[in-house]
Design a protein around this nucleic acid. Structure first.
Length: 160
DNA sequence: CGCTTTTGACCAGCGC
DNA sequence: GCGCTGGTCAAAAGCG
């Protein structure tokens, strides 16, 4: 199957597709790890802790809008699908993926645009704790071919 | 045999 | 409290 590759930033690589200013923010931000303990203690989290947690999650959410015939862009990492959901106001299902690497809790959501089915909205959440699994094409090349809008940081995807 | 995908069920958050 | 919605779980099936 044809795949498109996208180079993504990791905590262990020096190159990122982002501007230098953004790169600094990215590396300095706190790694968010959501584990089972956090899930089970959700009810007990105070309002302040909840706000802090939401802030941390926002710091690690990156949204790409790409124009591609394929849903899953090959970013060099290995992903395992763990869910699929029909979401409101969108005729295409949203797919949920987790990084297959041990102890890496990076997640991504993939959904096609409701109005333009050529557009794929990919949302990354978290920071990879390991190097990229395999070499990927240069991000600039991918951007030239695929990216139709700006890289959106900390903003939820617009799907209407 | 081990890993991934599929898919219905379950759970939590939110608005009314 | 109830219903809706989004996100996750987990068992079964599929695949190399």
């Amino acid at each position: 199957m044809e795949k498109h590759q996208v180079m993504l930033p990791t905590s262990s690589t020096s190159s990122t597709p982002f501007s230098s200013d953004f790169k600094v923010d990215y590396i300095n931000s706190t790694v968010h790890v959501e584990n089972e303990a956090i899930r089970t203690q959700r009810k007990a989290i105070s309002a302040q802790n909840k706000r802090d947690k939401e802030f941390i999650i926002k710091q690690h959410r990156y949204v790409f809008q790409t124009k591609s015939p394929v849903d899953v862009l090959d970013d060099g990492y290995q992903w395992r699908k763990y869910g699929k959901k029909i979401v409101k106001n969108n005729k295409f299902p949203r797919s949920y993926y987790r990084c297959s690497h041990q102890d890496c809790n990076v997640k991504k959501q993939i959904q096609r645009h409701s109005r333009d089915e050529q557009i794929v909205v990919t949302t990354y959440e978290g920071t990879h704790t390991h190097p990229v699994d395999k070499s990927a094409e240069s991000f600039d090349q991918i951007l030239g071919n695929l990216l139709i809008g700006n890289l959106v940081c900390n903003v939820p995807p617009t799907l209407e």
